[in-house]
Structures are given as C-alpha cells and as structure tokens.
C-alpha cells in the first residue's frame, strides 16, 4: 500500500536538544525518521515525556530541530522564516488538546473560524457569515453557533470548532495533538469518526498524537511508538496485537483496559516508570524496564530495522 502512496512529509534524522544548563542538555527527540503518507493517518503513541509533542512543534515550524531535516513536498521546512513560514502554515494545521484553551475568549465562533481565511486574504469580510456556516456544517454543527462565544459551547462542540478552524485553509496535513484526550469517551468516538470522514473526503494527511494505543489503532494507518525521544517501532496499524514486536509496544498493549479483555486475569504491566529525558540510559533507552535485556543493550542504541514489510523495530533482541 505504501509504495503507491506519495510521501508528503519526510522527517529525516531529526534531533532536538534543549540546553538545561551549561553542561547538561535534554534530548527531546533523538534521531527520528518518519514518513507521512498522503491521505493516511500516522498515529504517534507514547507516554508523557517521550518527545511526541516536541516532534509536532517541529513539524509545525514553531521550533527548529538541532539537526536533521523535515522535507515537505521536497522543501526543507526547517529553513523557512518570516513570510515564507507564514505561507507554509496554510498547508499544515493543527487541532489542539484542550478545547477550552484553544480559542480567543473574546472572539465569536464566526471570527475564530474566519480568522485564518482573512489572514491569507482568501475571503472578504462580507463573506464571513456564509463561510462560517459552511465550515460549521462540515463539522456537523448548526450554523446558528456562528454568533456565539466559545465558552458557551460544550467540549465536543469546541473540538469540532477546532477542527473546522484547522481545515478552513484546506491544509494538506492536519496534526492532532491529543485532540481527544480532554473529551468524554462517547464524544471522543464521534470526533474520531468525524476526522476519518473528513480524511476520506479531502484526502487529508493526519498526524494523530495520542497516549491511548487502542484509540490510535482505531483510526490510524501506520503506528509509530515513541519512547524517551526515539521511535522504537513503526508498524502498519492492522492486527497490532499479533504483529507488534518491540517489548515496549507489547507492554503498552497489555496495559490497555478494554471490554474484550479477560477480567479474571491479572493485568500485565512492566515495572517502574520511564526515566526522565534528562537522565536517559546509555544504549537502548528502554533497557532498564525491559524484561529481557542483554549485555549488548547497554552498549549500543539499537537502530530502527525492518522486521517485516513496512514494519520496523528498534530492538537488539529481534535480530
């Protein structure tokens, strides 16, 4: 499948370091390479501190990587500045995590939705009302909401507004940063369904960042699992329970509570917690939590290697 699909974004060996003090630095992203295929969803899963949000900020051009390239349709977006960067933002947009923080509290829904279009002079002020109604209908909301303020809306409605705003510019890529985490389960499901419908209609590429592997699995084509700044596994998002190879991915899968699970069996979990990114172990980042670590794991950091077609994992134990 992936061979026919065009790679719209190529993240190539991207590293992002933050200087904490003169001698220490925090490596938020460590040599990450990822492809985004056009019209597909790349799900990025990981626990807090794994660098998934930093990766997103790099993709949006809010921050620059320490090294490496992000190629968007043949152009390295890490070099963009000023007006070129502003223009680039038309093509990649984002939906925020917390819908109660994502809107200017003193702007009406109509103004929020049309702000990007006015900024790029794509519509005139007189067309605002019609355009807002069109966008609201797209996300299955009543056009009457256009005159309201965001605080008068429910969480699910606000998140739909967030999606509508992000899609107003008809971007090619949409980044969703934990966009469903602050919502109730039933609302969450509807938002995911909406995203998938819009993806089919608009041939949208989606980067779906989330900590819930079960949810990502339900809506992504490819799944990238991140741990302490590295991608540890990249796999097609089919039958992941069977195909996942990396011990961390397996640990994530076994820690999921869902309704199909065996309620009589004790829940599986790896021990301890992820170390702070300031304090990464040498060699394999997952080493000190891994149930089967070997001597080589402490010496070398395992690279991402192919274990099956379209399936990559970074683990010494698999080879």
């Amino acid at each position: 499948m992936s061979e026919e699909r065009e790679k719209i974004i190529r993240v190539e060996n991207v590293t992002k370091e933050y200087a904490v003090s003169a001698s220490r630095s925090l490596i938020a992203c460590d040599n990450i390479s990822l492809p985004f295929f056009r019209g597909q969803t790349l799900g990025i899963v990981g626990e807090s501190g794994c660098g998934k949000s930093t990766l997103m900020r790099l993709l949006l051009g809010v921050e620059r990587p320490t090294s490496g390239k992000i190629i968007f349709r043949g152009q390295n977006i890490c070099d963009l500045k000023g007006e070129a960067l502003r223009r680039h933002r038309q093509r990649i947009q984002m939906v925020f995590q917390d819908p109660s923080e994502a809107f200017h509290p003193k702007m009406k829904i109509k103004e929020i939705l049309c702000e990007p279009l006015l900024n790029f002079r794509l519509i005139r002020k007189s067309e605002m009302k019609a355009k807002a109604a069109e966008l609201l209908t797209m996300v299955e909301l009543s056009p009457d909401l256009a005159e309201r303020y965001p605080h008068a809306l429910s969480g699910g409605q606000r998140q739909r507004i967030g999606i509508a705003r992000a899609l107003a510019l008809e971007p090619e890529v949409l980044i969703c940063d934990e966009s469903t985490s602050a919502l109730d389960v039933s609302v969450q499901k509807k938002i995911v369904e909406l995203l998938c419908r819009l993806q089919r209609e608009k041939d949208l590429t989606i980067g779906f960042i989330c900590h819930d592997i079960a949810l990502v699995h339900s809506c992504a084509h490819t799944l990238a699992v991140m741990y302490l700044g590295s991608v540890v596994e990249l796999l097609p998002c089919g039958d992941i329970e069977e195909t996942a190879r990396h011990p961390y991915t397996k640990a994530l899968l076994s820690a999921v509570f869902d309704l199909e699970m065996d309620f009589t069996k004790e829940i599986d979990s790896i021990e301890s917690e992820a170390p702070s990114p300031l304090n990464r172990p040498d060699g394999c980042p997952f080493r000190n939590r891994c149930p089967r670590q070997k001597e080589i794991c402490g010496r070398e950091k395992p690279p991402l290697r192919s274990v099956a077609p379209d399936h990559f994992a970074a683990c010494h134990l698999l080879f």
């Binding site: 969450q188 369904e193 339900s218 199909e260």
Partner: peptide, 16 residues
Amino acid sequence: KNLLAAVPAVKGARYV
C-alpha cells in the same frame, strides 16, 4: 450501550 460501543479496543472496530 452507546458508552460500551465508544470504548476503544485494540481488537475493536477501525474507522479506516
């Protein structure tokens, strides 16, 4: 019933 259907599951339904 709706709530049950909305819980994401690793073996569960996929929308894509």
